[in-house]
Amino acid sequence: MNIHFDFSLDLIAYITEFLAWCVIGFIVYRIYKKQAAKPKVWKVIVSVLVGIFCISINLQFFGAILKIPILPLGVWILYGILKRMEGRWQIYRRFAWLGFWANFIFLAATLIAIPAHLLLYPEDEVSTYISNVENAAIINIHPSAGDHSLNIEKLQSQLHNMRQETSYSEEWYEETYKGADSKKINERFPYQLSGTLSKWGSGVKVIIYVEADGKGILVTAPNKQLYFRCKDSLLKGGK
């Protein structure tokens, strides 16, 4: 398979992979109908699945792993087994090769899924990562965190108005730790946002931190960080 997004339940990836299998199934059916010698269906399926095995190279592209087929390992295996059986290779040869070429169908599906995913789930919009906030809350994860709670109404009203800004990880680290007493460090993001759900179908898995002033949100994914700012603080209460 070629669809391997960092998102665990990516709806677009599932749909395009399903369509790819439909295309493969249709081609199998056409080949089967045209053959004079009709092999058993289960053997046809096995031939296609074995033919999919290949040696490939992996390339990362917009958060997806593209597998580029290089050598038809499965086809070679089937040939090595069937060449000793008279006429068998001729019967299953086209199905085995279809299995190998199916890798390119999956590759095409991935290339279609990537822009479709970015269109439906923009990476630069916080609403992709925070959609349902009914059960949202903040957790103090650093001693410098104040005695605050989350203002859910403010979060809900500002979701579509938050601006993405450049995150300055190195500068923030320098400001926080350079020359500071380890017991008096003021963490820039002392709160973690919990209980939220990402946009349905996106499948994104992120950890979200809230800035000490309540106006900044840091979205941390396995391969990137995104920083958003809002006009009003998301925190309430405190001493």
Rank of each mutant, 00 (worst) to 15 (best):
I68E: 11
L66I: 14
I65Q: 06
G99Q: 00
R93G: 08
S8F: 13
L19P: 01
K236L: 14
Q35W: 09
A108T: 09
L59A: 13
G74H: 02
S182T: 12
G51L: 03
P222I: 05
A137V: 09
I91K: 09
Y177C: 08
F228W: 00
L107T: 05
Y29N: 12
G146M: 05
R84Q: 13
C230S: 07
I185L: 06
L150K: 01
R30E: 10
A137P: 02
G25E: 08
I55V: 14
V44Y: 00
R93C: 14
N132T: 14
L19M: 15
S194L: 15
E211T: 02
R88N: 15
F61I: 15
K239D: 10
N135T: 12
L71A: 09
N151D: 12
V28A: 04
K231V: 11
Y14T: 05
L159R: 04
S144K: 05
R30G: 07
L218H: 02
Q156D: 14
Q225Y: 13
A145M: 02
N132E: 15
L197G: 10
H142Q: 10
I12M: 08
I91W: 03
A64E: 09
K215E: 06
G51N: 03
Y32T: 01
Y227M: 03
K83P: 02
G51I: 01
I139V: 12
K154R: 10
N103L: 04
S169A: 14
A20I: 04
K38T: 12
I52V: 07
I112S: 02
D213P: 02
A116M: 15
T166C: 05
T128H: 02
F18D: 09
R30Q: 12
I152A: 13
Y227L: 03
S127D: 06
F189I: 07
I24E: 04
N223K: 14
I15A: 08
K215C: 09
S47P: 11
A37E: 15
E153F: 07
L218P: 00
I24K: 04
N186F: 11
I27T: 06
A20R: 01
L66D: 04
F104L: 08
L226W: 02
N140F: 05
I24G: 04
V46Q: 03
P72E: 01
K205Q: 13
A212D: 04
P115E: 02
M85F: 13
F5C: 08
R93P: 03
G87N: 15
V48L: 05
L49C: 13
L73W: 04
H142Y: 09
Y209W: 10
F62L: 13
I70T: 06
I208N: 00
V219L: 04
L82E: 10
I139G: 01
K38S: 13
S157P: 03
A36T: 14
L66Y: 06
K38L: 14
E125K: 08
V133G: 00
Y168N: 10
D181V: 10
H142M: 07
V23E: 05
D147W: 03
K67Q: 06
K38W: 10
E187L: 07
G237W: 05
K67H: 08
H160W: 10
I208Q: 00
P115H: 03
S8P: 09
A36N: 12
I45H: 00
F61V: 15
M85G: 11
I68C: 07
Q192I: 13
F18V: 11
R88V: 06
A221E: 05
K34P: 03
